[in-house]
């Protein structure tokens, strides 16, 4: 599958999906006009790719500073998809990266991570840039 690299806009995050190395990243702010149009194709491609994997090592990094409620729903779905991939015999690591003084992102990461049953989850705070 062809890699996906989308640059950030004012309202949408930066996306880097490397299907060859199974490393995926979502970074920045997310409150697109139409969540389905923006995330639909990339999430669809990811789901298709993950459904065909077995015994693979997968890393997904989230590095977000702001997102709206629809994006939150997308992220919850993404966490479920990754957890299913881990349940299906893959080694899945989810990294939730956030600025050290961003209490909101820290709390959201903790909440999203709570529901994971099979994937590994890591919270990573970094100093403010």
């Amino acid at each position: 599958m062809e890699n996906i690299n989308i640059e950030a806009t004012e309202r949408s995050p930066e996306i880097h999906f490397d299907f060859g190395s199974n490393t995926f990243a979502l970074k920045g702010e997310s409150y697109p006009e139409d969540v389905s149009t923006f995330f639909g194709p990339v999430i669809g491609a990811l789901e298709e790719h993950l459904s065909g994997l077995n015994g693979a090592s997968v890393t997904f990094t989230f590095d977000l500073i702001y997102f709206n409620s629809s994006t939150a729903k997308v992220l919850m779905g993404l966490f479920d998809t990754l957890d299913e991939a881990a349940e299906n015999g893959n080694d899945v690591s989810i990294i939730w990266s956030y600025e050290e003084d961003d209490d909101n992102m820290e709390e959201l990461g903790e909440e999203f991570g709570e529901d994971l049953e099979h994937a590994k989850f890591e919270m990573k705070a970094y100093a403010k840039k």
Partner: peptide
Amino acid sequence: MSFDLFKRE
């Protein structure tokens, strides 16, 4: 490819 935010539900 269609994408539904609530497809699981």
